[in-house]
Amino acid sequence: MELKNVIDIALTAGEILLANGAETYRIEDTVVKICEAYGFTGECLSMSNGLLLSVEQSGVDKVTSMKKVNKKHVDLYRIELINSFSRQICEKSLSYEEAKKILDDIKKAPKFTLSVRIMAACMTGFIYTLFFNGSLLDGISSIIICLITYVILEKISELGFFQFLEFYLSGLLIGGGSILSEMLISSINKHNVITGAIMILLPGVVLTNGIKDILYGDFSSGVAKFFEAMIVIIAVSAGIGTSLIIYLKGM
């Protein structure tokens, strides 16, 4: 297979991994193994927002390519599909057309619908509210707040605002909704509702992957992921804190 085609396949696989929240070592290892499966020697550097790949073969000049990745989220299903794809290539080299078709299918793989994601968010808020000693009323209040917050967060994301503002407003909604719930029904504890509802916003996978990258020695990408998660946590905390301050000053 031609060198440019191998680079295209390897970088596309790496792009999907990076865009869907994979760890740095997994991205670099997958890209290099795909190159080796076609008889090329590759070196890959994964950064927080892009990939750098250098490939060479005996008697052929080294070629370096870059792929930038802007939109990122967490999708473990697509990561698993790429893992299976790389194992398939290592066992049996696929043609360029076959490999590209599989990668295109992975990119187009169905996502969970908005209604399913809203249901999962509401269930998460309800369970964690009960887990943190909340009452059944606290859990029901958390369901309503999670539903409203998740829908509004989706709409804000579509408008293209920067991430800090998105999560700040989401935290403000959770804090304000929890306070309003307690004001309407005195038996509801706003602190329990807040504790359960914020679980739908916390970037657990990103934070965990950042720590794993640091432990594996990938300090630049690990620190970037860690601080990305911290920015989200700070934004949510600031939003909730703002709503509580407004409430206390109005009392």
Rank of each mutant, 00 (worst) to 15 (best):
T41R: 12
A10F: 09
C122L: 11
S46E: 02
F126Q: 05
N83K: 11
S95K: 05
D29G: 15
F131P: 05
L18K: 04
E98Q: 06
C122P: 04
E36G: 02
S58G: 14
V69Q: 13
S135R: 10
V32C: 10
N83Q: 07
I34G: 04
K33M: 09
H73V: 02
R78Y: 10
Q57E: 10
L51C: 04
K33E: 14
A37M: 11
Y96A: 02
D104K: 09
T64A: 03
G125R: 07
L52M: 14
E28V: 12
K33C: 06
S65E: 15
A22E: 14
T124D: 00
A22K: 11
D61C: 04
L17Y: 13
I143T: 14
E97L: 00
I16G: 10
T124Q: 00
T41W: 05
I16M: 11
Q57H: 12
V32G: 05
I89Q: 03
T129W: 13
E98D: 02
S142A: 15
S58I: 15
A10Q: 09
Q88A: 09
Y128P: 01
R26L: 15
L136H: 06
M66W: 09
D138I: 08
K100S: 02
N133D: 15
C35Q: 06
V6G: 03
F85V: 02
I144T: 11
A22N: 10
Y128N: 05
P110R: 11
A109P: 05
C90H: 11
S141Y: 00
L81F: 05
Y25P: 12
I144R: 08
I144H: 10
E23S: 13
L94N: 02
K67F: 08
R78L: 02
D29C: 15
F126Y: 13
S65C: 07
V32P: 06
G50Q: 05
L53D: 02
C90M: 12
S95C: 04
S93P: 05
V74K: 03
E43S: 06
T12V: 06
V63E: 03
T64V: 07
G14D: 13
I34N: 04
K101Y: 04
